[in-house]
C-alpha cells in the first residue's frame, strides 16, 4: 500500500462531494446527477466515473472485483485494481460471489448479485437522448418533461431501416416508470438482470461528469414496442467450448487456422469457476 496518498487516493472533500451526489442518485433512480468529476491518474473515458464511485465507497473491509467486458485480466481492469489496492490495501478477488464491490465495464456478471454487494458500472455516454439531441440543455429539459418520444422514434427508425431494433448494447431502459436511462453499454442480454436486482447498481460517467443509480428491487423496463418486443441476444444451441455452459453470454471467436467458429464464455471468472468445479469432481 502506498502511504503517500490519502486512503482511497482522494482527499476527503472530493469523496464527500461524490458521496452527496451518489445519495441523491439513489433517491432519484435513473436521474443523472451532475458531479465535479475529479482528475484521475488514468484518462477520462477509461473508467474514471466507475473508479471515482468505487474510491468514494470503499473501506478497509471491502473485497473488490474489477472486470472489463467480462474479463478480470484485461489491461484496464488490472490497472484499476492496482490503483485501488495500492491506495487502500483492500483485498482483491476474481470470484463474483466473494466481492462486496464489483466495478465493471460493459457487463453484469453471470453469477446473480447479492444483497451485500454493490455493482459499479463505468459509463461512457450517460445520456440516452444524446443520439438525437446534442444539447445538454435540451436533453435536461426533455428529462424534466418526461418527453421521451425521441427515444422511441430512434428505435422505430431502426425497425424501419433494418427490420429490428439494432441497439447492440446500451439499449435504453425506463427506470421506475419515470426516467429513460442508458444502462451503460451492457449487451441486451444483461438488461433484464437490472430489473428488480438484489444489489444496488451505481453508474458513473467520469468524462461526462454524471452519477446515476438503480436501487435494489427497482422496476427496469427495456424500451420496446408491442409488435416488436425487446429481445436479448440468443445463443440457442450454442455453448462454451471450455466449460460447456449454456444460457450465458458467449463470445463468438474464429479459429484462424481452420476458419472454424467457436463460442466461449464472456465472463471469464464464471467460466473458471465452472471448470474448477468440474475438475474437483473428476479427481474425487
Amino acid at each position: 500500500m502506498i502511504n503517500a496518498y490519502n486512503f482511497a487516493f482522494f482527499d476527503e472533500g472530493s469523496k464527500r462531494e461524490i458521496r452527496r451526489a451518489t445519495l441523491k442518485a439513489i433517491a432519484l433512480p435513473g436521474y443523472q446527477v451532475p458531479f465535479a468529476s475529479r482528475e484521475m491518474p488514468i484518462g477520462r473515458g477509461w473508467g474514471t466515473g466507475g473508479l471515482q464511485l468505487t474510491l468514494s465507497l470503499i473501506g478497509r473491509e471491502d473485497v473488490l472485483k474489477v472486470i472489463d467486458q467480462g474479463s478480470d485480466e484485461s489491461v484496464n481492469a488490472v490497472s484499476i485494481k492496482k490503483l485501488v489496492s495500492d491506495t487502500t490495501g483492500v483485498q482483491i478477488t476474481e470470484h463474483t460471489s466473494q466481492a462486496t464491490i464489483i466495478q465493471s465495464r460493459h457487463r453484469i456478471p453471470e453469477v446473480p448479485l447479492k444483497k451485500e454487494q454493490i455493482l459499479v458500472l463505468q459509463v461512457p455516454l450517460p445520456e440516452p437522448l444524446r443520439y438525437f439531441e446534442s444539447s445538454e440543455h435540451e436533453t435536461k429539459k426533455l428529462h424534466a418533461e418526461k418527453e421521451y418520444s425521441g427515444a422511441w422514434l430512434m428505435l422505430f427508425e431502426q425497425i424501419m431501416k433494418y427490420g429490428s431494433m439494432t441497439t447492440g448494447a446500451d439499449h435504453p431502459v425506463m427506470v421506475h416508470g419515470r426516467y429513460v436511462m442508458a444502462p451503460s453499454p451492457i449487451p441486451r442480454f444483461d438488461n433484464p438482470k437490472m430489473d428488480e436486482n438484489e444489489a444496488l447498481i451505481l453508474l458513473g460517467a467520469g468524462r461526462e461528469k454524471k452519477i446515476y443509480a438503480v436501487p435494489p428491487f427497482t422496476r427496469i423496463v427495456s424500451l420496446d414496442f408491442e409488435d416488436y418486443p425487446f429481445e436479448k441476444e440468443s445463443f440457442d444451441g450454442k455453448c462454451c467450448r471450455l466449460c460447456g455452459s449454456e444460457g450465458v453470454f458467449l463470445d463468438e471467436l474464429i479459429d484462424e487456422a481452420t476458419g472454424e467458429v467457436y463460442y466461449q464464455c464472456n465472463d471469464t471468472s464464471y467460466c473458471y469457476e465452472i471448470l474448477n468445479k468440474d475438475e474437483k469432481a473428476g479427481v474425487n
Binding site: 476527503e12 445519495l23 433517491a27 473501506g59 454493490i118 444496488l200 443509480a213 435494489p216
Partner: peptide, 20 residues
C-alpha cells in the same frame, strides 16, 4: 477517524437509503 469511520457512516447511509 475522519477517513475510515466516516466512510463506514456513509456506507450505512447508502445501505439504508438504497433499502428504505
Amino acid at each position: 477517524d475522519v477517513v475510515h469511520d466516516l466512510q463506514s457512516v456513509y456506507r450505512k447511509l447508502v445501505d439504508s437509503t438504497s433499502r428504505p
